[in-house]
Every structure is written in structure tokens, then in C-alpha cells.
Write a protein that binds this DNA or RNA. Structure first.
Lengths: 132, 132
DNA sequence: CTTTTTGCAAACCCTTTGCAAGACA
DNA sequence: TGTCTTGCAAAGGGTTTGCAAAAAG
């Protein structure tokens, strides 16, 4: 653990693990603030940022949307439903050799990649089929 | 062409092709506005959006940064320099079969994926080596 | 003449920041 | 005690929107 062990930090981390499914910082804030009204938005943003910098949690940067936080810290991919905005894990193997290929193709020194899928989640697909 | 053929649209599209290297909407706006002061920011944002919806140009959604627009419309990947923010093309083959794998793994109907690399561009690498 | 597009400013979402007060080690 | 963290409100970046006027077809 890098920073100081404050009550807020514990509360925020616990709440993230309770919410489990890739909440945004603001969703974490709403939940935390409901139970602990004195905890402010900035603290939640700052703490989630620190936790992900430390590697204790994951941060999923979503194209065109708020960042989401992941209680699972290891590298994996995500898919976002273009209808309801829901984000889920995509447990396929991490791409092998693609960073090297990109380095060769671009001349950059590659440090990481992120792969995001877009699609329609089972619920929304169901709903569309029923409605149509 | 889907919409109406306005002067603004032509000017904006031309400016994008002239700028060539993945400008943000605001960079396009600055250039357009400098030459045509009557053209407003909203028009540039709206027009770039329409052009990319039509498939006439590409939109590159950057993790944690402004969208960038690409005069090349075909699918390809991008790398962003974590130091200077520059964005370049990564001309590696489009990932094959990965959408199907993701669909199987997640249950989503996958419509697309985006792969973004992060790294250090040759210029910044050079600069770091010289400075150090 | 009908419908789309424009230009402006204000609104919006998500996030960060300055600062003084408070909590940790 | 010295430093990190908090809470607040305000600012910030990027983008969208409501509306009346103008332009396209």
C-alpha cells in the first residue's frame, strides 16, 4: 500500500468490491455518499485514481464515456453495450506479439494496448427481438 | 452523400484533408475559423460527426482525450504518444477472428472493436535519450 | 416552400484543482 | 509534528443542445 490508510480509502475500496460490475467513479460516489454523506466527490475520484495507480484496482477507459473501475486488477478486455452502456469482461487471451508488431509498424516504443469491443448485450438483444 | 452539401461542409472536409494528421475537432475548428471567421465551433463538431457517421472520414476515439478525426476512412489502428500526445497510424493487419472470440466469451453480439496502443514516439524517445 | 443546417451562447458531463481544515504516522 | 488526505466549490476540457435566422433542394 502506497498512501495513507484513511477511513475513506477503506470505505471506497469496499464499496467498489461490493458494486463489482465496472461502476463509474460517480456511481461509486453515489453509493459511498449515500452511506457516508460526509465523503465528497473529489475524494472518491482521487482515491479511485490512487488505487488504480497502485495497481490495487483496474481502471477501464471507455471510448467516449466515463472511466470505469474494476475490482479485478489483472489485465483483461472489455465490451460495452452500445444500447444500454453496460460494460462486461471479455475473457479471451491477451493478444500476443501485437505490441511488438505495432512497434515495428509505427516506430514507437509500445508500452501497452487497450482493446475494447462494442456490441449488444444479451438483455438488449432479447429486448430488441421481443419488441420487433 | 447523405446530408446537404453546404459550403461549411466542404470547407471543413477540405481542412481535415489538409491537416492530415489526426487533428481533434477543436484543431479543425481553429484552422477553419482562422480562414473563415464566421464558421462556428458547433458547426465543425456537428459536421465532423456527420461525416464520420456517413463513413466519409474516420473518428478515432482516444482513451482519456479528445476524439480525433482521420481523413482516411478505412479501419486501422492507432498509437498515442504518452508524452506529447501525438497520434499515428499503426498499419498492422486488422485482427482476425477476435470479434467472434469475444462474442463467444461474452455473449454479446459484437459489432466492432478498437485497439489503441500507448507508447513513446521516436521524437520523444530521441529527446529523452539526449536529455538523459 | 419545406427541411436541413448554421451560429451563438448556454448547458452538459466527467474530472481535476486550489485551498484551508483535518487526519495519519 | 510534518505531511498526506479531505471536503468544498469552483474551474477545466471536450462536446452537445435550444433556438431563431439562413441556406439548400
Amino acid at each position: 500500500m502506497t498512501g495513507r490508510n484513511t477511513v475513506q480509502r477503506t470505505i471506497i475500496e469496499d464499496e467498489l468490491r461490493r458494486l463489482a460490475n465496472h461502476p463509474t467513479a460517480d456511481e461509486v460516489y453515489e453509493a459511498v455518499h449515500a452511506a457516508h454523506p460526509s465523503i465528497g466527490r473529489a475524494t472518491v475520484y482521487r482515491t479511485l485514481g490512487r488505487l488504480s495507480d497502485e495497481g490495487a484496482i483496474g481502471r477501464v477507459r471507455i471510448n467516449n464515456g466515463a472511466d470505469r473501475f474494476d475490482h479485478q486488477a489483472f489485465a483483461h478486455y472489455h465490451v460495452r453495450c452500445t444500447i444500454c452502456g453496460r460494460v462486461d469482461d471479455v475473457m479471451i487471451p491477451v493478444l500476443d506479439g501485437v505490441d511488438e508488431a505495432a512497434a515495428r509498424a509505427s516506430g514507437y516504443q509500445i508500452t501497452s494496448h487497450s482493446l475494447q469491443f462494442d456490441g449488444v448485450c444479451p438483455m438488449c438483444r432479447e429486448r430488441a427481438a421481443t419488441t420487433a
